[in-house]
Design a protein around this nucleic acid. Structure first.
Lengths: 343, 343
DNA sequence: TTGTATGCGTTATCAT
DNA sequence: ATGATAACGCATACAA
């Protein structure tokens, strides 16, 4: 019993053949006698031979591994995306190497460095909230290294992005609130550093204006943290400060919506009768709340899957980076539930 | 501008030195003149040199990569574990390669095969619900390959497991319900194939018996799916069929607890006044529900972190597999919230 | 202080 | 039909 894995050489020694013959026999190359193939495969099996992917990578300068850099794993939406990534990668014979930035720029940078060191074939990135300069990405992009961004699209010309229709989703949500007769709709917005926050806010604005409602700046509340407590606190403060009491909230995320829900309940407002609430992302728990929370559903799995398909197609040159469509926008779907349905 | 990455040879050529000198200079070996070191590092930087981790792996037969095989990524508890894994791995200089089995045995088997091919240094496993034979694990364990199991501990002698105190958590939850004066406590149990289900059920049983309450087999309802709908349906049926109406539910997972909550509400029962409910896992949404759901909190991040530390310690021979403690059990914590607090 | 040779596991190329 | 050799990028034992 030798320690470590059996190699081609071990098989060669066992059968008094050369390593090249073993290699060829194992891959059913023509010009190897059937008898030899049979014997080689038999011995390989007995020795529990397993090809060394590292050696292969070195030789081919290809690792069949893609990297994923993501802000957080413990996040319903992102974990869904990862699932989609992993699914496609696995079915196309690629490994997935995962790194979370925890929303930190320096971890993002060191992650991409390690991954490049590890000769990954391409990388999927959703950058951190701290990231404002994209040099660490352009540098590697300029070397012709494949990167596909998802969810958060950077300000890089020619970057390849897979996003959800944040604008449209926010627009739909706001229109829905208007159509339910809510008059004074507040938007809980996200960190301004993220394009998704800006797009969602714009969808909200346009929906109001399209309906002849002028946008009141005091009705847009930025929630940089995105926590429940923050949402609850900000909405409570709003109730005390705003002259005209809001009768609806469109939050850029579900957690904030729950915060708003609690704040409303704290002062005895009935949902959806007196206040309407809509979130964004359609996290699992939306349907568990009472009343069930309306939310804009984002196709996370699909996003991961499509981004991965695109990345691998680029790696395998089935897609031409020069001529391809560089922005893929996936549709959202408004899940109308009890928290915003009066009729 | 050459395509591909600069290598040690490129630097050597540039400086008219040998590759070995470059290698040594970059690693600050003694016996290289400071001047040479300086020049080498300068050129390395200019050429954007990045060591090829694949070549290193091949040479050292070590990849500094650990594999993670997990049933599902889109799962609050598991995603928390992954986060802990990733955190420690990153801080100790290891990559994480991720594969989800989707609770399928064949994917689990093929995942471990690919990972071994990729020369990972060790693997963290939470096996699938389908897995009943553990041959695919014992085979590699017997070769001396490091595996640490987490959450779901297999029936393998000498396996190294990191688990939560399922028995104790369930026991605590049940005692809590009893102490709140609930008399007829039903247990929604999990798939019998998982040890965690059995342990939780046993905790429930023992808590009752310790308090002189005999266990009514009709009060233990198996929920193999673990979905909200399943929980809701089974509890509704229970209300119609059981002679004596249950006044409390201890569910082996939070989703089932929400199902029970809905079923109670459907027939107008007040929580916690008329019915008490406790879940297991303390998912994020527990605190968002109304009433807030009591639940047994599992230290997911800690589990991932500890399992990874143990694995890496084994890999780096800081722990001796022969003599080490093979079972690490992490404590749970009962989060008492409104759904079960009458006093 | 630096260079040469060798090998990690595999395969493509060029023999035989 | 099979074998010998070189190469992928790097580190190290041994030479000089």
């Amino acid at each position: 019993m030798k320690l470590g894995q059996a190699t081609i050489k071990d098989i060669a020694r066992e059968l008094n053949l050369s390593a090249s013959t073993i290699s060829r026999a194992l891959k059913d190359y023509p010009g190897i006698s059937d008898e030899t193939k049979r014997r080689v495969k038999e011995v390989a099996k007995n020795m529990n031979y397993r090809p060394n992917a590292i050696a292969l990578s070195l030789r081919k300068s290809r690792s069949f591994t893609i990297g994923v850099i993501i802000p957080e794993v413990v996040h319903f939406f992102f974990s869904t995306v990862i699932s989609g990534i992993e699914d496609i990668a696995q079915s196309r014979g690629y490994n997935v190497i995962l790194s979370q930035s925890n929303e930190k720029l320096d971890r993002e940078i060191s992650s991409i460095e390690t991954m490049l060191s590890n000769q990954i074939d391409g990388v999927l990135v959703s950058y951190s909230k701290e990231t404002e300069s994209f040099d660490h990405f352009t540098r590697v992009l300029d070397q012709g290294f494949p990167i596909v961004f998802f969810d958060r699209a950077p300000a890089i010309p020619n970057a390849i992005n897979v996003m959800v229709a944040d604008y449209q989703g926010a627009y739909d949500a706001t229109i829905h609130l208007i159509s339910q007769g809510y008059k004074n709709i507040v938007h809980l917005s996200g960190p301004k550093a993220l394009k998704i926050s800006i797009d969602r806010e714009q969808g909200y604005r346009d929906a109001l204006e399209k309906n002849g409602i002028s946008v009141n700046p005091a009705n847009i509340i930025e929630c940089p943290l995105g926590t429940l407590e923050e949402g609850q606190r900000l909405v409570s403060e709003l109730f005390n400060s705003l002259p005209e009491r809001p009768d609806a909230f469109f939050s850029c995320n579900d957690i904030g919506a729950v915060g708003a829900m609690k704040a409303c309940r704290d002062i005895g407002l009935k949902i959806p009768l007196e206040v309407g609430i809509v979130g964004f992302s359609d996290w699992q728990f939306c349907a568990m709340l009472d009343p069930q929370l309306s939310s804009v559903s984002q196709p996370g799995f699909m996003m991961g899957a499509r981004a991965t398909e695109i990345l691998i197609d680029i790696i395998e040159k089935k897609l031409d980076v020069e001529t391809m469509e560089r922005n893929l926008i996936l549709e959202t779907k408004l899940m109308e539930r009890d928290s915003s349905r009066r009729f």
